[in-house]
Design a protein around this nucleic acid. Structure first.
Lengths: 246, 246
DNA sequence: ACAAAATTAAAACGAACGTTTAATTTAAAT
DNA sequence: ATTTAAATTAAACGTTCGTTTTAATTTTGT
């Protein structure tokens, strides 16, 4: 039984053809909207092959996510390691933390001549779904978010927990929507031709989010004094962290 | 045949009970994931009532969206009218435009003791979906986005089309994700207790997006000169606009 | 009150779903 | 070459889906 990876084969296996097809069909019609028959037809394989190779439709979904999320989040953490090492004991620049957070994602999106485009569309689609489907891949983000949340807190040591919390979520929101927009540039109104440059998008992203996060604290426009106390949570940087509950 | 609105009835009609139930079921399980039987069971009405009152499941979906999007977007445009009138011939403050863009949405989210919570969850979920479901309510946003895109261009007259385009989409991304986060505060890690204040969230939002949009142009960190030419598109403010293609 | 229209109810329709079974073919091992 | 396991196939399983049909009931207008 060699159902794993099956590398060192120059001919694409049935398992891989199912994964590739599932990625596209899922991205186009959603997890619930795609039938196993849709996928096996697109892959040119037999209907029962999904049950045989992945056990069930749910098993296939998990496999689709794992194939991409593992390498992608590993790359993000590696970049963060680099940023923290370079910063030493002082707070890392918020721009660098943001860069480590989003550049691998955008790069993965555009890698190999858009080969990962379908998966990223699927991701940006599923991240707004209820726990049912989210649970299938949430564990891929637990350790990642723990590390990055600590890094953001370090980079902005005077921000309150709420300012960090919302700043991080604003950033995540932009990232998801950016992936969505990058996948649908052709069909969006008001889209100038030069908007597709990935490098430029990443830099726009960092410029936007870095100043946005900073603006939440103190020097904000603060309509009526709501950006109140500087309740900074002292926290040693570059600490090793452990998984958190839920 | 009085299938419309059916107001002036102190007893909730079958039609309205279906709409209320559909909102919650759709939000929890998605449009494809919810069956007509799920909805009619939750509403305590007969299965055939959906076909009778709305023609089809698709008709029901459209009705669910129209009931909320109409008033909500009307409120946003009314606020924008106010902002533009107050600005006269000079560019309106970007903060005011952003406020008109998002405050009615957040307020609608929290109106009537969270009665609209389910719908907003449904919205933030569907906005990342492919054209199939998007087409059902996209027309609700066409005129709105046309007006606001012009307003953003006016408020930031030196920004290039690309800077406006991405700034608007970054803002939309934050808004969607914020609605999602507001609906799931209980289940999110790193969430401080004081994060639920809607007024504070709106002001954080505006502080973040206003400085973010400004930062994209000129005074940005601009890693390697990509935030280039000031290709401002001269455009008279407060102009009346007409619907745009696609 | 009565007739017409609107609404609800129960049952059934064909189609598509995820999954399983059993038979067959392909590949590897001895 | 023979044997054994892995991989693929075609067919069918039972369930649930959206929708329709037919009849009974309630509401409305005169």
């Amino acid at each position: 039984m060699m159902t794993e990876t099956s590398s060192a084969k120059h001919k694409q296996t049935t398992r891989d053809r199912i994964l590739d097809a599932a990625e596209h069909v899922f991205a186009d019609k959603g997890l619930d909207g795609s039938s196993v028959r849709d996928i096996t037809t697109a892959a040119g394989v037999n209907l029962a092959a999904v049950s045989y190779h992945f056990g069930s439709k749910t098993g296939l979904i998990e496999a689709v996510f794992s194939r991409h999320l593992g390498p992608m989040n590993t790359a993000r953490l590696a970049l963060l390691d680099q940023v923290e090492e370079q910063a030493g004991e002082s707070p890392p620049p918020i721009e660098s933390v943001l860069d480590a957070f989003i550049r691998p994602v955008v790069m993965h999106h555009l890698a190999e001549h858009g080969a990962n485009d379908a998966f990223m569309r699927l991701m940006s689609r599923c991240l707004n779904e209820p726990p049912t489907h989210l649970e299938l891949f949430k564990h891929h983000f637990d350790a990642l978010m723990h590390r990055f949340h600590a890094a953001f807190s370090c980079a902005l040591p005077n921000h309150s927990p709420s300012e960090i919390f919302w700043g991080v979520h604003f950033t995540i929101g932009i990232m998801h929507h950016t992936l969505h927009v990058l996948s649908h540039l052709d069909h969006l109104p008001f889209c100038p031709a030069e908007s597709a440059d990935a490098q430029a998008v990443v830099e726009r992203f960092i410029a936007y989010t870095a100043t946005g996060m900073k603006a939440q604290h103190g020097n904000s426009i603060s309509v009526n004094g709501l950006c109140g106390g500087t309740i900074s949570t002292p926290q040693s940087c570059n600490q090793s962290v452990e998984p958190f509950p839920s």
